[in-house]
Amino acid sequence: MRQGLRGERLVALFILAWLAFHPPIVTLFGVSATVMGLPVLYLYLFAAWLCVIVLTGLVVGRGDAGGPDGPGETARGEREG
């Protein structure tokens, strides 16, 4: 049962990451502005990427735990970008 849940979480994360790394979401950040001296697009891609990595680590590493940190962190990450 737990493994099933882990699989489902990873599939959901995959879909989320897929959306985050593809147009039109990526296109949204193609503006000619900088945040803290960094171009928005550059910052967004790396921040989103890091979030995906962290979430993968959380889901895979603690297959049975880690409920609350799921969607919350991603939302935060996307806002950063």
């Binding site: 882990r6 990873l10 599939v11 790394f21 990595i53 993968t56």
Partner: peptide, 12 residues
Amino acid sequence: LGPTLVFVLCWA
């Protein structure tokens, strides 16, 4: 980014 996506699905 592509490999990152695949590794998210490593489990499956």
